[in-house]
């Protein structure tokens, strides 16, 4: 491929980080693609009082 400056399109199989459904990592492994699965969970809700309290205790 002509150099687009995008390393994804340089001709090599992609190297993937999967965030979310495990199935998508499995389908890539089936194709011998390197995948890192992120153990993702929703971020905790922001609570300013609690964060300020934490700041004073840590």
């Amino acid at each position: 491929m002509t150099d687009t400056g995008n390393p994804l399109l340089a001709g090599q199989p992609p190297c993937v980080v999967n965030v979310g459904i495990d199935l998508f990592a499995e389908t890539l492994r089936q194709q011998s693609i390197t995948v890192v699965q992120v153990l993702w969970k929703p971020p905790p809700p922001q609570d300013d009082d609690l964060l300020n309290l934490l700041d004073s205790l840590i």
Binding site: P7, L8, P14, C15, V16, V19, L28, W40, P42
Partner: peptide
């Protein structure tokens, strides 16, 4: 080396 993120959250 990662160059693609597959996101399904």
């Amino acid at each position: 080396q990662a160059n693609l993120a597959c996101i399904s959250v």
